Amino acid sequence: MIRFIRWLLFPVALLYAAIVWLRNRLYDRQLLRSTAFDIPVVVIGNLAVGGTGKSPMTEYILRILPPAMRVTVLSRGYGRKTKGFRTVATTDDATQSGDEPLQIKRKFPQTPVVVCEDRVKAIHQIKENSDAVLLDDAFQHRALRPSFSILLFDFASILKPMLPLPTGSFRDSLYESKRAGIIVITKCPDDIDHAQKMKIIAKFRKYSQAEVYFSSIAYEELVDSQGIAFTKEELTLTSVLLLTGIAKPEPLAAYLLPLVARLEQLNFGDHHQFTSTDLATVQQRFEDLAGTKKIIITTEKDWQRLPPSFLASHPIIIAPIRQQILFNEASSFDRAINNAFLQQRSVNEY
């Protein structure tokens, strides 16, 4: 039914695509103003709506940059109830900062993390104390002219027709990949081969000469809120309620299914703010879960949004993930990223 309604809205999708195309051309011809800065400003983004792995990519980049480099992470702070410029603290909750910025801050406490709807205004405020700025979702924010853009595509989406919203899930056409410095195909399956790789690269070559890399999600050891590991051996005897509020929970469910005694899922929308009614539903589903040994598994992003009282009274286990670059190209990718953060600064020093 939903799919049928989406196709009924196809004329709206065509109108949306035309408006977005016109807006981009106005920026390309500098008829609409965009602002550049004299420090490296690196953008991570996508053309589709949600679920491409921007947060894991942000974390990957923070891990490979020189420790002495003062990088500030800037985000819109989607899902927060505050407005304007805000410096994220580890003691915040998701309603103050948004779940993804809070996750980044808690994992990288020494890294400044800022949220602001107006990314240009925010960079003006932080640039004096930053060597570079990393934005986690700003490819469509054309009022900002980045020094380098990393464009992400979910593997499943790249194989389907790229239809614009609301019929499809794309905010921009593939033509806009011409603005990318690097393209990354994320969430690739384990069995992706060289032939598939070259077919996907050929698809981009009509629009962009950017290097195309491929990555997959690696699931790290499950941990509790104190960082204590929950081993795979324990999982085999455990019933699990998988609680998620992310765009695409299917890969995590598929990963856990063969590892656990029993798996049930309770899925909410991406960035969902859990209400007391939601938590009562979770409580009931957990109580109804069969088995004497049972836990709730959730993602790092969802964990940020669960109330401390709920976390303290339930056996919550977190499933951390990380990005890994495929086809033995991690060193090449890392060099390209480091160059993106160093190049403009070197130019500006002359």
Results as ranks from 00 to 15, higher is better:
2 I>Q: 13
5 I>K: 08
6 R>H: 10
10 F>N: 10
12 V>F: 15
21 W>K: 14
24 N>S: 12
25 R>W: 11
28 D>Y: 10
30 Q>E: 15
30 Q>L: 13
30 Q>C: 13
31 L>N: 13
32 L>F: 13
33 R>H: 13
35 T>V: 15
38 D>T: 15
39 I>L: 11
40 P>G: 09
41 V>W: 12
42 V>D: 07
42 V>E: 05
44 I>C: 07
45 G>L: 01
47 L>F: 09
47 L>W: 04
49 V>R: 07
51 G>L: 01
53 G>E: 08
55 S>K: 00
57 M>V: 15
58 T>V: 09
60 Y>E: 02
61 I>S: 00
61 I>L: 02
65 L>Y: 02
66 P>Y: 03
68 A>W: 09
69 M>T: 14
75 S>H: 05
77 G>Y: 01
81 K>V: 00
82 T>F: 10
83 K>T: 14
87 T>C: 13
89 A>F: 11
94 A>L: 00
94 A>M: 02
95 T>R: 15
98 G>K: 00
106 R>G: 02
108 F>T: 04
109 P>A: 10
112 P>C: 04
118 D>W: 06
129 N>P: 00
130 S>H: 09
131 D>C: 07
135 L>M: 06
137 D>V: 06
139 F>Q: 01
140 Q>I: 09
141 H>I: 11
141 H>C: 10
143 A>C: 10
145 R>K: 13
149 S>P: 07
151 L>N: 12
153 F>D: 01
155 F>G: 09
155 F>T: 08
156 A>L: 12
158 I>T: 04
158 I>H: 04
164 P>Y: 07
166 P>E: 11
166 P>N: 11
167 T>L: 07
172 D>Y: 11
172 D>Q: 14
174 L>F: 10
174 L>I: 15
176 E>A: 15
176 E>M: 11
178 K>V: 09
179 R>N: 08
180 A>T: 05
180 A>G: 05
180 A>M: 05
180 A>E: 04
180 A>P: 10
184 V>S: 00
187 K>H: 05
189 P>R: 07
192 I>D: 06
193 D>S: 07
194 H>R: 15
203 K>Q: 12
212 V>C: 10
215 S>M: 06
218 A>H: 14
218 A>P: 10
222 L>V: 00
228 I>P: 06
228 I>C: 14
228 I>L: 15
232 K>N: 15
232 K>G: 13
235 L>C: 12
236 T>K: 15
236 T>N: 12
240 V>F: 04
245 G>I: 00
250 E>S: 09
251 P>R: 01
253 A>H: 06
256 L>R: 09
256 L>V: 11
256 L>S: 03
258 P>H: 05
258 P>W: 04
262 R>M: 13
264 E>F: 04
266 L>S: 05
266 L>Q: 05
270 D>G: 03
275 T>F: 07
276 S>Y: 09
279 L>P: 03
279 L>G: 01
286 F>L: 07
296 I>G: 01
297 I>K: 03
299 T>C: 06
305 R>Y: 02
306 L>Y: 02
306 L>T: 01
306 L>D: 03
310 F>Y: 08
311 L>D: 06
312 A>R: 08
314 H>T: 14
315 P>E: 05
319 A>F: 00
321 I>H: 04
321 I>G: 10
321 I>W: 02
322 R>Q: 11
330 A>M: 13
334 D>V: 09
337 I>F: 05
343 Q>W: 14
345 R>W: 09
346 S>I: 15
348 N>L: 14
349 E>I: 09
349 E>T: 13
